[in-house]
Amino acid sequence: MSLLASLGPSVDPIALVGLGGVLTALVWYIFGTPYAIAVGHVVLMALFPDGIDPLSFVLAETVFLAMLLVAAIRTSRPIRFASVAIVATLVLAGTAWVTLETQTQTQPLWVAAVALVGVGCLAVYGLHRYELVRLGLVSEAAESVESADPGSGTDRQTTTGHNTRGRIRQ
């Protein structure tokens, strides 16, 4: 990023964009989509140190979105993958945006970053729990605790174990 920033004043901006694009494409080819997206955004940060204009932003993010869709095509369930990726991205970005817009503190960006990472982690864990339920891996013991104490509200302990379909190893 510092290299691109140092080249900024002396080199043609179009050449810089092209260089950033080639770098991103190289990382995409070698390391895959998520790393290409990361490198691409670092390049954008370097190319627009004072903030990116809306048109450039839309163009750049369209390219990254296209990379996501190309990745989806290579999976066994492209539509499912693409729809989940787009929805999840919108939710995470929306979380950050809403956080930024509603914050009144002097340093609002770190709160938005924490909110984004936190929601992302919760989503990963939520899918994990959803998997346990879908595959019937929630233990009978946990179910019996719940059925024996139906009025205990939201603070219920759930453990993984075995049921009629199998057992999970933790």
Binding site: H41, V42, F81, T89
Partner: peptide, 23 residues
């Protein structure tokens, strides 16, 4: 640079999509 947060959201979305696909 808030734009990096968008990149973070894209990468996070990609990871969640992979997880949903695996499931």
């Amino acid at each position: 640079q808030p734009i990096a947060l968008v990149g973070s959201a894209l990468v996070g979305g990609w990871l969640l999509a992979r997880q949903a696909l695996f499931l």
